[in-house]
């Protein structure tokens, strides 16, 4: 009788283990870009270009 109980308990623990559900959210990180390099990236790294865009913003979009 004891053997049957132990066997049933072991089987039950395996069965319950099968019901386990991982509740962690699956996060996807973006992969590495596989296309051609945009020439704009080099242009935007230039401080003069950044200053030009900042000046343009102040000129056209700031409140009067």
């Amino acid at each position: 009788m004891r053997k049957v109980t132990v066997t049933l308990l072991i089987m039950a623990s395996f069965a319950m283990g099968g019901c386990y559900e991982d509740t962690d959210i699956t996060l996807h990180d973006p992969g590495v870009y596989r296309g051609t390099t945009d020439p704009l990236l080099a242009k935007q790294a230039n401080p003069e270009q950044q200053a030009k865009l900042a000046a343009r913003f102040l000129e056209g979009q700031s409140d009067r």
Binding site: D29, P30, R34, T36
Partner: peptide, 27 residues
Amino acid sequence: DAPCAAVCPVDCFYTTDDGIVLHDKDL
């Protein structure tokens, strides 16, 4: 942290250093 870039199966998205999210239509 653009979700479009995270799910793209062909990794056609890139983000410029000043934060503009762009993509390659060839991919």
